[in-house]
Design a protein around this nucleic acid. Sequence first.
DNA 1: ATGTGTTATTGAAACGTTTCAAAAACTTAT
DNA 2: ATAAGTTTTTGAAACGTTTCAATAACACAT
Lengths: 366, 366
Amino acid sequence: MAGDSGAHGDLSSNGTHPTKDSKKATIRDVANKAKVSLGTVSNVLNDPERVAPATRNRVLKAIETTGFVRNIAARQLRGGGSKAVGIVILDSSNPFFTEMIRGAEDALRQEGYLLIACSTDGSNDREAMYLRHLEEHQVEGVLITPSNDDLEQIIDFHDRGTPVVLVDRESHSGELCSVTVDDVRGGSIAVSHLIDEGHTKILFINGPTTIRQCRDRRAGVDVALKSLKKVEEADWIEVVDLEVPSLSIASGEEISIELIDLDPTITAIMCANDLVAIGVMRGLARSGADLLSRVALVGYDDITFSSLVSPALTSVHQPQYDLGYAAARLLLEELGDSNHRHHEIRFTPDLVVRESSSGRSSQSQR
Amino acid sequence: MAGDSGAHGDLSSNGTHPTKDSKKATIRDVANKAKVSLGTVSNVLNDPERVAPATRNRVLKAIETTGFVRNIAARQLRGGGSKAVGIVILDSSNPFFTEMIRGAEDALRQEGYLLIACSTDGSNDREAMYLRHLEEHQVEGVLITPSNDDLEQIIDFHDRGTPVVLVDRESHSGELCSVTVDDVRGGSIAVSHLIDEGHTKILFINGPTTIRQCRDRRAGVDVALKSLKKVEEADWIEVVDLEVPSLSIASGEEISIELIDLDPTITAIMCANDLVAIGVMRGLARSGADLLSRVALVGYDDITFSSLVSPALTSVHQPQYDLGYAAARLLLEELGDSNHRHHEIRFTPDLVVRESSSGRSSQSQR
DNA sequence: ATGTGTTATTGAAACGTTTCAAAAACTTAT
DNA sequence: ATAAGTTTTTGAAACGTTTCAATAACACAT
């Protein structure tokens, strides 16, 4: 920029970083350098076919010479989009969510969007705060796993003009797009696996039934049982319920204490998610209990580390990355289509069988 | 807004979401409703003491009635900040980084900033792309773990006006703030622990020595050895080196094949990070090898799941959350202080001893 | 009522970019 | 040289908010 001091006018210090206070080049600087109008520079940036090649090259050179970096805020103000999307998740310590973010980020990067990540830790108030900040920034859309069952605040947010895609949560009345996994089916295939292995009395450790995913997974167990009873008249299969206050490793550890003296006719445990299952494993290991050599264990989510614990955990695989990727693609679709119709993408989970449910001694007891 | 149609003027459809196309309230709408000037509304929002209570209340009511949401882009254009900070990390699958993001987000949330998360996966080109996008958005600062040793592109970015804090990386010439962990010391305390346990021949599985952290951790081993040799003239301690191409679980699994026939005089293994150590464990378990019952294993990072694998992994604890939190605080400090002097915060790691290095049979062999 | 000092409010202009009607420049045909 | 058609370029105005010099309003003293 050595030869351009004149184009920048006053280079006086404004008190911030006195040693490095050059003003950034604007579109006006480029226009002056290339001896064209502001509109022509804008056309070169946004509609290059409209500009004669010679002029275009002159402008491109001036852009390089001045070190021009476009100002998104100015564009946004004039009516352009913010090129940013918010993602609001529950817990950034849970690999389920971080894989989801990864999928969303990959999809958005392809279109030149930035991803603003917000963790609510299940707090409705924090969710409200983040939504407000995102609205002030005029993000082009938001991907969100709601902090609770009541979608009112999210729907209000959407109604004020920002497209929303629900992640791992349905929109019952169809006013929002959503990406979900069929948790009823997930519960069914997990319990069916255990039944196929010969287990007849199964403990289901659920999370808070205020959480729809917990309810669905448990409901899936009933669906599988009903279906089996119809086909095989299998009336001897029994499911026992227990509930932990949160879907965390800590909750699993706490409940493991109650499992030490588990009814010996229970030969299988199914947990509402992997963190709870891992906590159970950890708690039992800590207390020296040998329960898991006779009892099968199944988790839900198939987070990255489930294959690394010992015994490796059988788990219902949720396509975490795909959830995030699909949600972002759905949002991009909505942004590009003024006649967009909301819809839902539903993924089907599958079971990944590992050590924790294999070769348990249920068959010898049956 | 039912009684306000006049204030909004033309509510004609612009072809986007025809059913819900109300224009958002601007500061002008608030001013009209409260019968004050634009400047007064701005003062109520930004400098409320300057406005008479009666006027202020009238304006606040109008803000509520109109549903006004401030427009950050407009403020930014006029000279306000973007209230957004970028964080550029290497790999969002590694819990080390996700914990770090969590710390940064918590610190920034307190000041009303949003966090824009970007993953480079170690790619210099992707890092460059993200830096450019962040610059267009005029983020108020960037926290970054560099994708490689060459900081030139990051320093250029900083020199163009955006404050930068390096995370887990030093700035050798002091032109940037940084937050690091003393990896030399981490290496030392890990190997010292093994020596204290009686191990005299130790295998060090390093990552790419182009990565400064890998070099430092290995260097720390030498520092501990030198120190010990001075004090106790302990010339019998030996370290054997091996290198994996990347710090991943997969690399650890691959190298585990070579460990099956490990020299029996090697009684301890130290890995450059937890993912490699976990990979080694997994690979050995898969091949049925019983090596880890006689050989101690130490990792580095102490990611969340290290305590959950079996045997639970002894690891050098890195304060991941604190790294992120401190980096963000340092950046906020720099933003608030026009006479800011760059400095470095250096954390001291500590060793968390778990099963993987306890009670290995090294002492009976010595 | 007049003068002085203080507080509160106003409103023009700035910020960087895009947009599109109008003007200018270019090309081709007569 | 003139006219018509096409391409290229221009530049005024808009976007929402902040800022600060100028003005208005208010309070108090004489």
